[in-house]
Amino acid sequence: MTLKKTILFLHRWIGLLSGLVVFIVSITGAIYVFEKELFALFHPSYVTVTAHKGEKTLPLSILKANAQRVTDHPITLIRVPARDDQRQIYLFEALKRRPKNDIVGVFINKEIRYWDRIFVDPYSGKVLGKIDVETNFFWIVRQIHQFLYLRRDVGSTIVGTSVLLFIITLLSGIFLWWPKNRKVAVKRLKINFSAKWKRLNYDLHQVLGFYAFFVAIVIAATGLVWSFKWWETSIYWLLDGKRPNKKHEEPKAPENTIDAASEASLDLIWSDVVKSYGAHEGALVNIPQNASVANVTVYKKGNTWWSASDTYTYDLRSEKCSFQRLQNDKTLGMKWRDSNYDIHVGKIAGRTGMWIAFVTSLICASLPVTGFYIWYGRKFKKKKKQRS
C-alpha cells in the first residue's frame, strides 16, 4: 500500500469514527459564537436600560442586595459593563451548591455547577429578570458542545478525542488535496456548481475543506484546552517553558477584622478600582463563598490582539489590595490562556473574526456529511457493479 493510499484509508475511517461528534460540536459551536448577540435579541429588556443625562449608578452593594432578594443562593460573581456604555445592565450570578460526588450514570449532569443570573438596572436598582442557566437554551447548547450533554468526565473525553481525530483528518485531507502543479491547483480551488450531485458533493468536501483548513485547525486546537489538561499544559510549556503558578496565599487576618461579607467593603474596593481606570471594557467581581478575599478582573483595550485584563485581589477585612497581576506582567503563556476563548470564537478579531469562526464552524459541520456521502457512494457503486 502506497503512502497516499495509507493516508486516504486513515482519512476515511478516522472521519467516519469522529464524524457524528464533529458535526454536533460544529453546529453547536456555530450557534454559540453569537451567544451574547442572540441573547440580547430575544431578551432586550434584560440587557439594556435607558440612562438619563447626568444620572449615576447606585452603589454596588445596593445592587447586589437587590439581586440577592430574588435568589436563594449566595451571589458570588458580579459582571459590570463597560464604563463608557451607559445602557448596559449589571449582571449578578449566584452559584447553586450541590453535594460532591452526586453522580449517577452517564447521562447525569449533577456534577456540573449551575447558577442563577440576575439582571439589575444600575440606575434604579430594579431587578429586570432572572434566568436559571440549567434550563437556559444557550447553556444547554454549550453543554452539548463541550460534553454532548453527558457527564463532564465522559462527554469531555469523547469530544476531545473526536476533535483530535478531526485535526488528523484535516491534516491528512490537506495532504490528499495538495496538487502536483499550478494548473491542477486552480481546478481544486473552484466548485463546479453545474456538475452532477456526486461531483458537486466532492467539490464541496475538498474545496471548502481547503479554505477552512487554517481557521478550523485554530478553532479545534483552542477547543482542546477544555477537554484535556495535558494539552493546556503542553502549550504553556511551549510558550513559557513551564506552567505558571497562579495561586497566591490568602493574606493573614489583621487583629481588628471586619465581616468578610461586608457590603461597605465591596463599595470601597470597587471605588478603588474605578479610580485607576478612566475607561474599561467591563469587569468581573468574584466573591468566593466563605472566603475573605474578592478578586476583581478589569478588561481593557490592549495595544496588541491579546485580550487584555488586569486582576486584583482585595482583602475584605482590611479593604486593601493584597495581590495584583497586570497585563504587562503576564507571560506569553498567560496572555494566550486569557485570550483562548476569544481566539476560539473569533472574537479576538472583532465582529469579522466572529463571522469567520461562524462560517468555518458550518463548513466543519458539512465535512463529515459530504465525506460520508463520498464514502457511501463509492461503496454502494462497487456493490452495484459486483451484482450486475
Rank of each mutant, 00 (worst) to 15 (best):
T2H: 07
T6P: 04
I7F: 14
H11S: 02
R12V: 02
I14M: 12
L17N: 00
L20C: 14
I24S: 03
I27S: 04
E35P: 00
F39M: 02
A40S: 15
A51Y: 00
K56Y: 02
S61G: 05
I62G: 00
V70W: 10
T71R: 05
D72N: 13
D72A: 15
T76L: 08
P81M: 07
A82Y: 10
A82G: 12
Q88A: 15
I89A: 13
I89D: 01
R98L: 10
P99A: 05
N101Y: 08
Y114Q: 00
D116A: 04
F119P: 03
G125A: 11
D132F: 07
N136H: 14
Q143W: 12
H145D: 05
Y149A: 12
L150C: 06
R152N: 03
D153N: 06
T157G: 11
L164R: 04
F166C: 05
F166S: 00
T169Q: 12
I174A: 10
F175E: 08
W178I: 02
V184D: 10
K190F: 10
W197T: 01
Q206R: 09
A216P: 05
I217H: 05
T222R: 04
T222F: 10
L224M: 15
L224Y: 06
F228I: 03
T233S: 14
I235Y: 14
L238Y: 09
L239I: 11
H248A: 11
E250G: 02
A253T: 11
P254Y: 03
E255F: 10
A264F: 06
L266G: 00
D267W: 02
L268Q: 08
W270F: 07
K275S: 01
G282P: 08
V285M: 13
Q289H: 12
K300Q: 12
W305E: 01
S307Y: 12
T311S: 15
T313E: 09
S322W: 08
Q324R: 14
L326I: 03
R337D: 07
S339N: 05
H344K: 03
K347R: 15
G353S: 10
W355A: 06
F358V: 02
L362F: 15
I363D: 05
A365M: 03
S366K: 10
K379I: 03
F380M: 14
F380W: 12
K381L: 10
K381P: 04
K385D: 10
Q386Y: 12
S388P: 01
